[in-house]
Design a binder for these strands. Structure first.
Lengths: 219, 219
DNA sequence: ATAATTTTTTAGACCAGTCTAAACTTTATA
DNA sequence: TATAAAGTTTAGACTGGTCTAAAAAATTAT
């Protein structure tokens, strides 16, 4: 049984380590969680005592098998709740993150099972992120950032990266980008990395390099 | 902004004071919350500093207008979530209390508004308890305990009292009592207060005095 | 290879919420 | 009405989570 704080640290470490594929430094965790490095040191000692991460002084932390499992459970809950908020309660995709951050900590396996069933076992959340199944397995096809697509190709939007700010999502809605949209790459500007695209064959827009890095599409 | 603990104390005080109609002693709160009297003393000082209750040393606490409002918001959330769990996710009425105890603390007015709308503005939860509206107003008709009904009368079940244990609810389901059931009072035993009833005109059962005090019916 | 800089950890403090034990107030009893 | 019993509050300690300031280790630069 993890405390709310422990769950948040574990989730942050999971994400920062790219799903457990690399180790994470104290300062990175502190930045991500808006806490001080000293607090992180305290907490990683606790999590490592619980065998959810391995911690080597001065060299950062690595997530364990059990830690990964626990993190995925939290992420599963987060994404199911986001899906519920958008699909069932008609939230916009830029309104759900904060509420899901709270809901993900509700402790009730039965609730999550029933919610999953009610939503018809969705495989992705409103931002296109995969929802781990009950056993923690994630099945995603290949996703590449829009900035890596060659000119003249046409692709489908699979997901968008959401950091802290919901303003990126509002911007995407405004220009007409959504999960499933068809994007034709018209032109790529060398000097600033911006891209001209045609959305669903009817609307031409420029997107910055920054934005194109956070729109994930079919290869 | 109240902490989770403050919210729980406030709710307990609201209930123990019968909606703010009487004052509550330290020990009663301690019993209800399974804490020690000393802890209650500490907390009531905090809540009274926040003007949610008035506290007179050695004489207990009374809830203020603001305290009542805040308590009703929490109760509203609790009962809306219970309704959601039963109506939408097909929980049984004896499975919802604990989960709703967690969900009631989620902070998002928008969520509650949308949930209320999705559920079609229900006026009672699965146990028949009234759901305060957005402004905190409760509209309930008169409800009397089954034990107060005279023999030979027929009444409708409006609500059931749920304390800690869900076993009473399981018992009611088993004998066939539910919200809306029609009960004909066949006979009342003087010596132990038990009552013989006919449920929906087809099933005869005896209920103990204890049980009949916790089944609320039309007068 | 040593010094300067950055990162990380430790030590010690603080706040919220809880507890036990002792002191105090109120109420009940003789 | 004096005293015993019951209930309540205070004092002091503990835990979880956080912080600042200082010490220690690692990295970078000279």
């Amino acid at each position: 049984m993890l405390s709310l704080t422990e769950e948040n640290y574990l989730k942050a470490i999971y994400h920062l380590s790219d799903g457990g594929t690399k180790s994470v430094l104290t300062n990175e965790v502190a930045d991500a969680m808006s806490t001080k490095p000293a607090s992180v040191t305290d907490m990683v000692k606790k999590l490592s005592a619980k065998k959810l991460i391995t911690y080597e002084k001065y060299y950062g932390v690595t997530i364990t098998k059990q830690g990964k499992t626990d993190a995925l459970t939290i992420i599963r809950k987060h994404r199911l709740w986001e899906t519920f908020l958008v699909q069932t309660l008609n939230f916009h995709w830029d309104q759900v993150h904060e509420v899901a951050e709270q809901l993900e900590h509700i402790q009730s396996p039965l609730l999550i099972e029933k919610l999953d069933e009610f939503l018809n076992f969705p495989i992705a959340d409103p931002h296109g992120h995969p929802i781990p199944d009950k056993s923690g397995k994630i099945h995603t096809g290949q996703q590449v950032p829009l900035c890596d697509i060659a000119a003249k190709k046409t692709v489908t939007v699979l997901a968008v990266n959401v950091k802290e700010s919901s303003s990126f999502l509002q911007y995407l809605s405004k220009i007409g980008v959504y999960i499933g949209a068809r994007l034709a790459i018209l032109d790529k500007a060398e000097f600033d990395g911006s891209i001209e695209i045609m959305i669903d064959g009817k609307k031409k827009v420029f997107v910055s390099k920054e934005a194109s890095q956070n729109i994930l599409v079919t290869p």
